[in-house]
Structure formats: structure tokens, C-alpha cells
């Protein structure tokens, strides 16, 4: 259990670093799907089985496929210029990211009462999850479905090729 957590975490961090730093965009997308699968594995470790399955279905099944299609449609397999601007901008990115990491780790370390929290021995079934979703969370559920419809229509309209007005 403990060994599995550290193994998955190492895979997660290494593949995330590769996903944002490799030169070939196809490899970046494949590393991103490794990130999504290993965070689904962490969800399974945290006993959130339904969310893990949803993560694999949506992220690996839909988002990674969509990213691969976008990379292939734009014929931009190897980006000619790697980073934004010069080397100096690159070091700005490193600086900002490590500053954010420093603040986050510092705030986690300052919360000493986190160590007192233990995992309760509970199992949330999918049945109770569905009941909760359709009673207390009915409004967010409907808003999410409306959002998905709007996103689908918007995606089609934006990516649709405009008709030539010549004929």
C-alpha cells in the first residue's frame, strides 16, 4: 500500500515533467496520458473507485484522444522554437513555478494538525453517490449537462471550416 503510493507518485511526477518538457508533441501527449492514468491509480488508492473510473474514461478516453487529434491535425509535431522567448523567459517560468511550490509546501508544513487526521474506515457505494447526485446536487448536475452541451456546440462552431463566399 505504502510502496504503491510512492511508486505511483514517482511515476506521476516524472511523467508530468516529461509531458511539459519533451520536444516532440506526440510524446508529450502520451506522457500526459500516463499522468492521467497514474492519478486515476491514486484515486483507486484513496478508495474513490467511481472517480477513478470516470478519470480513466474522460481523461484517457476522451481528452488524450482529443489532444492527439489536435497535434496530428496541426502538423506541428516538433515545435521549431521550443520555449517562449529567450532563455531568460524560461528561467522566469522556473522561478514562478518554484515560488508557487515553495508557498504550497510551506503552507502544508505549517499545518501541524494535518498529521492527526486519519482515514475513516468508510466505503461510499456508487448507489449512495448517485442518490446524492440526483438529490442534493441536482442543480450542479443540470448546470454541468448544460455546460457540456454548450461546449459541444461551441467546439463544433469554432472548429467548423468557413464556407468560401466566391461561388
Amino acid at each position: 500500500m505504502i510502496a504503491a503510493f510512492y511508486l505511483i507518485s514517482v511515476v506521476l511526477i516524472v511523467s508530468a515533467v516529461l509531458a511539459v518538457s519533451l520536444r516532440n508533441l506526440i510524446y508529450c501527449t502520451l506522457c500526459a496520458s500516463v499522468v492521467f492514468i497514474s492519478s486515476a491509480a491514486l484515486f483507486f488508492l484513496l478508495k474513490a473507485d467511481f472517480i477513478g473510473v470516470v478519470q480513466i474514461l474522460i481523461y484517457v478516453g476522451a481528452v488524450a484522444t482529443l489532444l492527439l487529434f489536435a497535434v496530428m491535425l496541426t502538423k506541428n509535431l516538433v515545435s521549431r522554437q521550443y520555449y517562449v522567448g529567450q532563455k531568460r523567459k524560461w528561467s522566469y517560468g522556473i522561478f514562478t513555478a518554484s515560488a508557487v511550490l515553495w508557498v504550497l509546501i510551506g503552507s502544508i508544513r505549517s499545518q501541524t494538525n494535518l498529521a492527526e487526521l486519519v482515514t475513516a474506515d468508510h466505503q461510499l457505494s456508487v448507489v449512495s453517490l448517485g442518490k446524492e447526485m440526483l438529490t442534493a446536487f441536482l442543480l450542479p448536475f443540470e448546470v454541468a449537462s448544460l455546460l457540456l452541451t454548450a461546449a459541444m456546440i461551441g467546439g463544433i462552431v469554432i472548429a467548423l471550416e468557413e464556407k468560401k463566399k466566391s461561388s
Binding site: S9, L12, A16, V20, S21, K89, L104
Partner: peptide, 30 residues
């Protein structure tokens, strides 16, 4: 068991890596 802070640390590292990628890479897909 694994303490909660380890999960939070992994998540913080993941967030910073994503932030670095979004800030520095030239390709809009990345």
C-alpha cells in the same frame, strides 16, 4: 498509513509542473 500531507505534497508538485508548462512552452497544445 500514508499521512495526508504526502498526498498534498504530490499534488503541489504536480500543480507547479503544470504551471511551468503553461507559462514557458510555445505550443498552445502543451
Amino acid at each position: 498509513t500514508i499521512p495526508l500531507s504526502h498526498y498534498l505534497a504530490v499534488s503541489a508538485a504536480l500543480f507547479s509542473i503544470g504551471l511551468f508548462g503553461a507559462l514557458t512552452r510555445r505550443s498552445a497544445i502543451i
